[in-house]
């Protein structure tokens, strides 16, 4: 049986704006991925535990609250702690170029800003998987 890419989509933070996360989930489903949709108000601990249990290839976070500089590093640390840092951590939100650079240095993958195309996101995940 062909290998299916499994992607975890989760939304940390208190706000309920899940439009972007849902649109990306639908686009990834239509690209043939299996999307584990964890939904709103996910803590870094919940995100990493889910990623372990579901053995996803990719963790994609939608962060609009401005808390990306605390959430991404925390998730990265927990991934290392749990021995799953071979997975890709990526995401989208309102993140300045400066912060994007900092996060990528830490080991976070590509981050998509407002107006980004879901096709680019799908393409990115596919290419990452091919290289792996």
């Amino acid at each position: 049986m062909a290998r299916k890419l499994r992607v975890l989509i989760a939304k940390p933070g208190l706000d309920g704006h899940d439009r972007g996360a849902k649109v990306v989930a639908a686009a990834m489903r239509d690209a043939g991925f299996e999307v584990i949709y964890a939904g709103l108000r996910q803590t870094p601990e919940m995100i990493v535990e889910t990623a372990i249990q579901e053995d996803v290839d990719v963790i994609a976070l939608s962060i609009l609250s401005g808390a990306h500089m605390t959430i991404f590093p925390k998730v990265l640390d927990l991934m290392k702690e749990n021995g799953i840092n071979d997975k890709l951590l990526t995401g989208g939100g309102i993140i300045s170029e400066e912060d994007v650079e900092k996060l990528q240095k830490m080991g976070v993958g590509k981050l998509f800003g407002p107006g980004a195309s879901t096709r680019d996101a799908v393409q990115y995940v596919k290419e990452w998987a091919d290289e792996k």
Partner: peptide, 22 residues
């Protein structure tokens, strides 16, 4: 702010980082 909108006090652990923000 979001904690208030969610019925959380400012000292609730879920409020961390979001107090007085929006």
């Amino acid at each position: 702010d979001l904690p208030t909108l969610m019925g959380l006090d400012a000292d609730d652990s879920f409020s961390e980082g979001e107090v007085g923000l929006c």
